[in-house]
Design a protein around this nucleic acid. Structure first.
Lengths: 232, 232
DNA sequence: TTGTTATATTTGTCCTACAAAAAGGATAAA
DNA sequence: TTTATCCTTTTTGTAGGACAAATATAACAA
């Protein structure tokens, strides 16, 4: 019957989630306690606890002694964060993450240009001038990150911000592990004179030129793009 | 000591993940068995099993009798999927998901226009003509979904595709729960004559006009945008 | 060498027990 | 009556033992 070995804990997990949905429980509401689920599901308390432990990890529930178990609003990316170890990812997945990054970076322009204030621009100028002192070829992945994180912050979507923060190790890993691939790209682009740096992006922002910014961002992320389509 | 009640299972989970990272285990490698972790961590087998159960749920490991436990490449969005019950989300979070959607939809234009084939266009035409028969005001959320899913498929990023599929219930939920909000927007937009349908989007695709497409998509998603910034 | 059987190991499940936390009630003091 | 303190009881967190089922490995037979 069970092709994919589904354990009792798997089933219990599903049943408990089902219970929450069917009863329209919302954050703050309390769940039956472990023994009640043990009886309801006809399984041992151990198994119920395994299932609960999973939901607790995801942030779906919280439990405190005597107080029982309550439903909570889950931090959406809890599980994603734990799973995102670059060492465990296939090239395909890494590429897809890069694609996601490119898409988001271009897509949030809408929000960036809607929200940006003069104060934000001043802060971006500071970041950029600090990085110009370092020189575009010596920028670390962290330097890259600082600029783009600021962009995300201005765009004002915490979820995307958090998402990118979690994805960051993947990009760091890629640049480190595929340096022999990225370096020639950068050099070639440099020769062609089309390397677009943060200072260029900032210029478009200042000019309120959203489409120019999107085009420039596309070029700025060219190395990723090439990795995406030309590696392997 | 423990401000945020961190249980032994939490710690064990962290230690096991740490073990995988420190030993540079990759998918296929095998982990110490339960008893070994029980001894290594000085805790009961029950607790080890709770931690393992969590990792198993995330897809980080698989275990089979006698064969022990092996590391696997995790499906990245396993946890995300389980947690994304619209009933549990705050308005803020729902809005952020919509923002993500808008950004992705505009950002993937890069990939869409790079990959699209004549065959894809024919398929899109079929979808669109079917929907024109229904009429733009009678389109269900599913109809909406069919078109956009096709776009994502052409863009060729499985991760984004999957991501959107998981987010879909949130949009469905929003439209259903905030119908009194969405409807007036649609009517107003209709009066202003600026409702952009799938047939318009398809036109830009046919003309290979990426920027036109992005602008049109921005307008197409206007109701979401207004919800994002004008609701509450 | 190949096929079969037996053994040992390991996960999956169940059970019992107890410590620690804390809600709720009982009791005492104002 | 109200407030403060103590006690009881419930519920989660942790430990440890037991056994079934699966299966890798070794031992044995053809």
């Amino acid at each position: 019957m069970n092709l994919s070995t589904t354990t009792l804990a798997d089933q219990a997990e599903g049943k408990i989630i089902g219970y929450i949905k069917e009863n329209h429980l919302v954050p703050g509401d309390s769940l039956p306690n472990e023994m009640q689920f043990t009886e309801m599901l006809g399984i041992s308390r151990n198994v119920v606890r395994e299932a609960m432990s999973r939901l607790r990890m995801l942030g779906l529930i919280q439990s405190r002694t005597k107080r029982g178990i309550i439903v909570t609003e889950p931090p959406l990316l809890n599980g994603f964060k734990k799973v995102l170890d670059p060492n465990l990812l296939s090239i395909k997945t890494i590429k897809e993450m890069m694609g996601m990054r490119i898409a988001l970076e271009i897509g949030i322009a809408e929000f960036l240009f809607r929200n940006i204030s003069d104060k934000d621009i001043t802060e971006l100028e500071k970041i950029v001038s600090r990085q110009q002192a370092i020189g575009i070829n010596n920028l670390s992945v962290e330097d890259e990150m600082i600029f783009h994180t600021k962009i995300y912050e201005v765009a004002g979507n915490d979820f995307i911000l958090q998402f990118n923060k979690i994805m960051h190790p993947v990009f760091e890993f890629s640049k480190r592990n595929y340096e022999s691939y990225f370096k020639p790209i950068n050099e070639r682009l440099n020769k062609e004179g089309v390397i677009i740096g943060h200072e260029d992006l900032l210029l478009y922002i200042k000019n309120k030129d959203k489409e120019g910014y999107q085009k420039a961002m596309q070029k700025h992320l060219k190395p990723y793009w090439e990795f995406l389509y030309n590696y392997d």
